[in-house]
Amino acid sequence: MATAAEIEKQTEAREIRNRWFLSAPALIIILLAASGPLLIVLLYSFLTPGPYGDVQWTFSTEGWVSVFLERDIFDDTLSFASAHLTIFWRSLKLALMATAATLIFGFPTAYFIATRPERTRDIWLFLITIPFWTNLLIRTFAVLQVIRNEGIINTALINLGITDQPIQMLYTDFAIMVGMVYVYLPLMVLPLYASMEKLDFRLVEAGYDLYATRWQVLKRIIFPMVRPGVIAGSILVFIPAIGAYVTPSVLGGGKNMMFANLIELQFGQGRNWPLGAALSITVMAIVMVALLVYVRNTSGSEARHG
């Protein structure tokens, strides 16, 4: 009996060793590529800025204080950093609006593709992914070309006599939104399509048969069943949207900054790495809280059904 127990112990030990060995690559990547840099950023946020960028190894909470508060350069009093708050608010608002807009445009698109005959669906999906072939910067400049004052839209509007002044679209929040919706739409369409493709359209027929109108079928049958796709798509759009850098800097001009631009400013011209680091962690916290609230609310009603 004792030998059997011993053998079992040995096997168990070997299994544990194997487990660590096999998961080592994943652990190394998580430690080096994800947690490591994050810890450095966290560390930097509690240090003092160096005169030419970089950090000095003295502990300071000044970086965190200046995320939300502003120190008057003359009398050292603190007041709300309204510029930061404006940027926070704009980022959050634009990211939410872009998510909503991609959902509104993406839902019918995905539904359209999912209801095509099987052999033509791939062609439609292929068309959706074509923009991915081009660099993000170039796509953003393409949007700029379309909406600028001398761009296609304004030229057309003026030539048609609808307006005699070009409508200022570029360098506004609207421009950033358009750019983000254009860039992130496939990220919404693809997960939506994936869950719609699995949708049993006989259930849609059953809904119609049981006196549900088109709107009720959408609300009560299609939407609950593709909810995983809606959640996945929204997360995939919201996260890059709130951290968007290229789009706001090209289409928003200098004054319509978003989070990423502000962070870049601190690490670049601002030479305030601790503030930049603190801002980065703030964004992460906001994204995490937003996702938690969102996922809990959207999957909550699912759980209530059973």
Binding site: R202, L203, E205, A206, H305
Partner: peptide, 13 residues
């Protein structure tokens, strides 16, 4: 008029 479907088509949610 109501239908009983071959696959039943019950709403899984």
């Amino acid at each position: 008029v109501n239908t009983v479907f071959q696959s039943y088509a019950l709403f899984p949610h």
